[in-house]
Amino acid sequence: MVTAHESIINRTRARLAGVTEMLKKPVRPDELLRLVNRYAPLRQDVPPVSLPIPEAEPPSPEPVSEPEPVTDHLADPVSQANQLLQRYAAGERDFTGISLIGCNLQGANLEGINLSRADLMLADLSGCLLIGAKLTGANLIGAEMVKTNLREASLGGANLIGANLSQANLNGSQLVGVNLSSATLYQARLRGADLSEALAAGANLTSADLQSAILYATNLHGAVLNQANFEQANLTGANLWQARMEQTHLEGANLTGAVLPQITGD
């Protein structure tokens, strides 16, 4: 694959789709030749020989080198997901540190599961029931979590860069120190959630419900907060610089020491 958008998320998506190599634009000739030689090596040149002497055996051809085998070290996402569901159905709940990259667990009932420090990059958890689940320190970069029920779940220190949490239920969840940079939380429910010291720069919180949420020292730089509900929320020391706050509800919110966006006009 040749791409101008080389990132860890795109690389992982490409590997899961079966791509063996990625070349970043502009393509460097030495890199291209290296890959051509790896996957389609040239046959060795046969040196010129004189006319054969009668009854002499012809020279044996030189062996052709075989291309280096390419192995894919990524685990099969389908079998990984099936194994997890079978073990959960058998009563197991502790899956600390498990690797589930790109797994499809859409709509699964995983209430109370422990996925602390699990690798769930690009996993599909849409519609999952994760009430009270432990996802502390989990890697959820680029994960799909649309309409996922994470009520009272623990996600402290989790990495949710670019994750899609649209319409997810995060009421009462613990999100201290999470990384929500560029994440989508459109119409997400975060009532009473604790997002203290979270990084949500560039996140989309349009129409999200954060009533009574704790956002102490939360970084919302450049976030989209249009029509979001921050009534009675604690935004003490929060960074709202360059955040978009059209029709944002802030009745009763605590903005002590917060950095507010520059307001122009009347």
Rank of each mutant, 00 (worst) to 15 (best):
A213R: 12
I8N: 05
L220F: 11
G102A: 07
M121S: 07
L23M: 15
A56K: 06
G112Q: 04
L130N: 04
E31C: 02
A163G: 05
G132S: 08
G172W: 15
Q232K: 15
A118V: 06
E55V: 07
S212N: 12
G102D: 04
L185Q: 07
A253I: 11
N204E: 09
Q106V: 06
I101D: 00
S7L: 01
E111A: 03
I113M: 02
Y216K: 10
A213E: 15
L32R: 15
N104I: 07
T136M: 02
H73L: 06
L185M: 03
K134P: 02
L115R: 08
D94N: 14
Q44R: 15
Y216F: 15
T206G: 03
I8M: 13
G157C: 10
A4H: 02
V176N: 10
Q174Y: 15
N171C: 05
L51Y: 04
Q44E: 08
L122G: 03
L140P: 05
T236G: 00
S99G: 04
S181M: 08
A217F: 14
L160Q: 10
P47F: 08
Q80W: 02
G252S: 14
P47L: 14
R117S: 12
L129K: 15
T206D: 01
T264A: 11
L155I: 04
I263P: 00
R34L: 13
T264D: 03
Q83Y: 01
E246N: 08
A201R: 02
M22Y: 06
S7P: 05
P61M: 07
A201L: 03
C128W: 02
A258M: 14
E197S: 13
D119I: 07
P63F: 01
Y88S: 00
S196E: 05
A193K: 06
A153T: 09
T206Y: 09
V224W: 05
L190V: 06
N226M: 08
L85P: 00
D119H: 13
D124E: 05
Q227E: 13
T206V: 04
S154Q: 05
R13P: 07
I8Q: 13
G202L: 09
Q211W: 05
N226W: 07
N114G: 12
T218I: 09
E144T: 02
V70G: 13
R87A: 05
K24D: 03
A163C: 01
A233N: 11
A188P: 14
D45P: 07
L84P: 04
A168V: 09
N234R: 05
L120H: 03
P69Y: 09
R244V: 08
L199S: 12
S65A: 10
R13Y: 06
N82H: 03
A228Y: 03
N254E: 11
Q86E: 02
M121N: 09
L210F: 10
G202A: 13
L240D: 00
R93H: 06
M145N: 02
R191P: 02
T184S: 08
L165R: 06
L210G: 00
P26Q: 07
D209V: 03
Q86D: 03
R191H: 04
I214C: 12
L175T: 08
L100Y: 11
A81S: 12
N164V: 06
K147E: 01
I101N: 01
L260K: 08
N254W: 05
S65P: 01
L84D: 11
H5C: 07
L33R: 11
I131S: 10
A208C: 14
G172M: 11
H73N: 09
V146D: 00
C128Y: 02
L33T: 14
A198D: 00
G156T: 10
A198S: 13
Q232A: 15
I214S: 13
A193R: 09
